[in-house]
Amino acid sequence: MASALTGTGVRLASPSQPRNMRSRQSARHVRAIQGCPSLLTQRSGSRDDSDMELTMLLTRCASGDRAAFRALYDNQSARLHGLALRITRDPGLAADATHDAFVQVWNQAVRFDPERGAAGAWLTSIVRYRALDITRRRVRERPGYEPPEQEDDSPDALAQLVTSAEGAALRQCLEELEPDRRSLLMMAYADGLSHSELAEKTATPLGTIKSWIRRSLASLKRCLES
């Protein structure tokens, strides 16, 4: 199949997700409703309320409710655009990724399963996959294209995770990893770096990177489930 085209695919979060995953819903992104950008940095501590609100908005989008779509945009666009910008490292590409993600959300809101919940994670996945696809296609199409360097995370980046119960659990488990392993996972997730990009950035052999990441992910899962 045409690799130039397969790259455009954005995987949707699985609709067949078991309900027990609701306990891992992420809720840090819920804010006061009306679309005031200055409120976008607020984080709610109440994950059920926040995820329920997003779920409700998505359900209304699925039925063609434009006001709900606008409210969702006001509520989530800065968060999702931040993720897209971080991965693409290019304002134009980031805007494209955020645009595509919202268009996809509107078109495919019917495919979001309210029973599954985890609306925030669903939205996060859509924009991340889209940003990854766009960035990697750009790299493929323009040999030699180097996205601008990303500033490293501030040391307190992990502190951002404690804004929800799930975030706090994840932070605790990340902190159990060696600092360099932890930073690999965070660079991969937030900056969208592949195995080989991580190897290059950290001047570490590719095989070592792969095995560190696998072991870190396995530890992370064990820790989260304990």
Partner: peptide, 12 residues
């Protein structure tokens, strides 16, 4: 998904 919280929001 909670890891996404380390990325600051940026208004589009």
């Amino acid at each position: 998904a909670p890891m996404a919280a380390i990325v600051p929001p940026v208004a589009p």
